[in-house]
Design a protein around this nucleic acid. Structure first.
Lengths: 221, 221
DNA sequence: AAAGATTGACTGAACATTCAGTCTAGAAGC
DNA sequence: GCTTCTAGACTGAATGTTCAGTCAATCTTT
């Protein structure tokens, strides 16, 4: 269980790093379940099979634990996003994959992710730490869209719309749809958010996209 | 200060009603400042110049106070919205006024209103009471858009887009822009949210709209 | 390589504070 | 005098943080 060995304190430093991550992941789980404000140190301790004191030992304060947790979440998500983008050649394909990551159930589970964001938004006005992470993520996020669109335009895939306007609009649209995903509005299931977002992007950028084959056609409304 | 007088318990019942509203308004102020989760009974008591015990006297529990407060906020906002709609003849005009109410600084201050909503969203997954109010407001909200669009189409003002799809998309877009308004993102000031939302609506529905005369043209980006 | 010294990881118990909600008793209005 | 309204003192339960000290591993010294 203990990987001691090699010379200096390397092993224990690794172990410590693992501990930290374990706690960060546990914190994220608890935030999703109980909400940011109601996440207690004791919860994280319990979930990592340790004591509240140890959590404070690693993170000086509760706030530090929580802000590091959200930073961790963002970094992880963004890294996965970049990884996927690199495997896709066309801008339209990249945009499609991005939408899927955001809207459709899959590996980084969008609902959990967006539940976190609802909390970040609510916390931002009152917490400088959260606000900073949110702002940075938001910019990174828009920059990602922007660069895909720009590349697509240069490759002739996309119509020459104003990149900034389109980016902000799409980002906002996705945020709004994300709320519905997170809150599981029965009127707006994930597949529908995906279709609507794709239709908007395809319409504005002028690339072809056909909505997924509808299963049963809902009758009224 | 005390309006006693007339016969039975009417006066005191009115006074009690006023007290309640006073407390509800105070609660909303505190929620905006400190956030839903950190709103204490003592804050509301202090702001109304009374005691915590009295707040509990009127609302049995803290949760009841808070959920009634958000209901009150929604009812007030929606009533004002309806009032304004009735004074506008065209569907395009109504839609424009709606956007202004949502985006541009004015009487029901959008930023405060949206800050409340950020909290409602974050609270919804864990509070049945909040979730219920939110869901109802959301539906009411979409229904309002839908009926304006439908009227506009019947009057020949608007292009015949799919009403449901358009409604959900616009509602989501506005929610997303609202996040930027609430969080005061420097990249996306209120005027810009208004312009983008209007451009989207005008483009989709095919009515004329010219962006407000830009003041100073920002140079780079 | 054995003995001692040092460090990092960790715990249990206590502390201090914060707060929702209760209780009691009094004031105000009818 | 009966009901409604109000405040202040209080309670009980959480919960973040501190602290003194244990334990095991590693480093130093001889």
């Amino acid at each position: 269980m203990k990987e001691h060995a090699n010379g200096n304190g390397r092993a224990s430093r690794d172990a410590a790093e693992q501990r930290r991550e374990q706690m960060l992941r546990a914190a994220l789980e608890v935030i999703v379940e109980r909400g940011y404000a109601d996440t207690r140190i004791a919860d994280v301790a319990e979930r990592t099979g340790t004591s509240p004191a140890l959590v404070i030992y690693y993170f000086k304060t509760r706030e530090q634990l929580l802000t590091e947790a959200i930073r961790y979440s963002e970094d992880t998500w963004y890294a996965e996003f970049l990884r996927r983008m690199q495997e896709i050649p066309t801008a339209a394909g990249q945009l499609t994959e991005l939408m899927a990551m955001i809207c459709l159930p899959g590996n980084p589970e969008p609902r959990s992710y967006w539940l976190l964001w609802l909390d970040f938004w609510a916390q931002s006005p009152r917490s400088a730490g959260v606000a900073a992470v949110r702002q940075k993520s938001d910019e990174q996020w828009r920059e990602a869209i922007r660069s895909i669109v720009q590349a697509g335009q240069e490759a002739g895939e996309f119509a020459p719309v104003d990149v900034d306007d389109f980016t902000i609009t799409l980002a906002a649209l996705l945020d709004g749809l994300a709320v519905q995903i997170a809150l599981e509005d029965p009127q707006v299931p994930p597949q529908r958010t995906y279709d609507l977002a794709m239709r908007f992007a395809a319409g504005q950028l002028g690339f072809d996209w056909k909505p997924a084959p509808k299963r049963a056609r809902k009758s009224g409304r």
